[in-house]
Simulated scan of single mutants.
Amino acid sequence: MALVSDGRFVEDGWRRLADEETLPKSGKAIVSLARLEHALANLPAGVSLGVNLPNTTEPASLAAALPRLELIEIAFPAFADGRGFSLARLIRRAGFKGELRASGRLLADQYAHALGCGFDTVEIPDDIAGRQDEAQWRAARAAHARTYQRGYVAPGSILDARRKAAAK
């Protein structure tokens, strides 16, 4: 898997745990949603905690865990399944400030939209990374410096910029 951050392929400092694996005593660990409650109760304070969510997760079910989570990873089982984008927006609106990661079959063409929905990083399979190199992801990030929606890519929107220019 390749991890894209700011249009570049970067090293992933997080470790994804299988449900049967012992919880670590240090480092950064990603657990499944089924294991989240157990991890919250038993993980030492020095361990950074992340959770992997299906794109069908109800955001309200995470409310109590949000302050303890440093990473939320949302699964994208297919590039045409956009439910993860909606889930990301809802999680950001709920106040999550940590790293939000899209994981799965996303394409570089979807990168600007992912950033606009609040994602910080995108994890893609090696076959997609082989077809769409770092240069394509960088270009996709740079292609849309502003959007019509107020989001997370840049402060303001195209409409805000037009209103500001008209007021001068």
Rank of each mutant, 00 (worst) to 15 (best):
A135R: 13
P54K: 06
R146S: 11
G116V: 10
A165L: 15
R101E: 04
L159D: 15
A18E: 10
M1I: 01
A139C: 02
A2S: 07
E58A: 15
A112R: 03
R16A: 13
A34R: 15
E73H: 03
A45K: 15
A94I: 06
R141V: 13
R35W: 06
V10N: 00
G156I: 13
R89Q: 13
G84N: 05
L66V: 05
E21W: 09
S32E: 05
S32H: 06
A114I: 06
L33Y: 15
A167R: 13
A161W: 05
T121W: 05
A2I: 01
D81I: 05
G46E: 15
V122N: 02
L107I: 03
L3H: 02
G82C: 11
R105L: 12
I74H: 08
G46S: 10
A142Y: 00
V47Q: 13
S5L: 08
L23S: 04
G151H: 06
L17F: 09
A2V: 00
L66F: 12
V47N: 12
Y152Q: 11
P59S: 12
E21N: 07
R141G: 09
H38Q: 14
A102S: 12
E11C: 03
K25D: 13
R162W: 13
D19P: 06
G116Q: 14
P24Q: 05
G82H: 10
A45G: 04
G130D: 08
L69C: 10
L43V: 01
T22H: 08
D12K: 00
E99Y: 04
A78G: 04
D6V: 03
G118K: 08
G98V: 11
D12G: 10
A140N: 05
T121N: 09
A34C: 02
G151Q: 10
L71F: 03
D126T: 00
P77V: 03
R131T: 01
R68C: 05
D6E: 11
Q110V: 02
